[in-house]
Simulated assay, not measured.
Amino acid sequence: MSESLLHRCPVVPVVVIHDAAHALPLGEALLAGGITVAEITLRTAAGIGAIEALATALPELHVGAGSVLVAEHVDQVVDAGARFVVSPGLSVAVLARAQARGVAALPGVATSSELMTAVGLGVTEVKFFPAGLLGGPAAIRALAAPFTSMTFMPSGGVSADNMADYLAIPAVPAVSGSWMVDPGLLAEGRWDEVTARSAAAIRAARGSGAFQRVV
């Protein structure tokens, strides 16, 4: 990627949204809490509509699509306004389509073999997933040692309680998680709580030292 995605914001919320009408108040709540990047997953039918709503109304929020599994998904989300795509695994076809459409792609990796493939494809930023089950911060430290040019965004098992442990690693400029955008909060319209959790996450990132690396 020519432009770093992971250095835009140290905390990237993973949003599972069931009603596209919630997209705008959600985006406003995230921005109010200091979060400027959001991943809207394709796990629900409302995902693409939510991406389109946010891309249109809140250009200051860097909106991307998660759970992008096939190349056709790339076309769908980019047409809706997504500015990056995130996948749970590494797909050469997804990476190629993202490059053709001019958007950043963050492939998921779990092993050193997948990291070698990523390096061969010119990828310098990856999602480490599922981070908690794969060994957490210790696993990333071990993988970062031979892959000195790679930066990691851990996802899966990352929480408010352990995010600072990940962000203390120089190779981790950002983490992703869903605690600040819990589906229950969205369903109940508790936007103030989304803002509060987002602000707390940004404060924690600042305290970890990642904020200084990002800004």
Rank of each mutant, 00 (worst) to 15 (best):
L58C: 05
G156I: 10
L106R: 00
G156R: 10
H62L: 13
V78Q: 12
A145C: 10
F147Y: 13
F152H: 04
G120M: 10
L42N: 04
G136V: 04
P107A: 09
T44L: 13
P137L: 08
K127C: 00
L133S: 14
A57D: 07
A160H: 14
V63L: 01
I40G: 00
H62R: 08
S112T: 15
A144Y: 11
R101C: 07
L54R: 01
V103P: 06
G156W: 10
G81Y: 06
I48Q: 06
L133Q: 15
V109W: 07
H62Q: 04
I35H: 05
D79W: 10
T117D: 09
H62C: 10
A45Q: 14
P146R: 11
V85F: 03
R83K: 14
G64M: 06
A55M: 09
F128P: 01
A45K: 14
G108T: 02
D161V: 11
L58I: 01
K127F: 04
V68Y: 05
T36D: 04
G108D: 09
S149G: 14
G66T: 02
V77G: 00
P59M: 08
G108I: 02
G156T: 09
I48E: 12
D165E: 15
I140V: 15
A80S: 05
G66A: 13
S155I: 12
P107H: 11
T36Q: 11
A118Y: 04
F152Y: 15
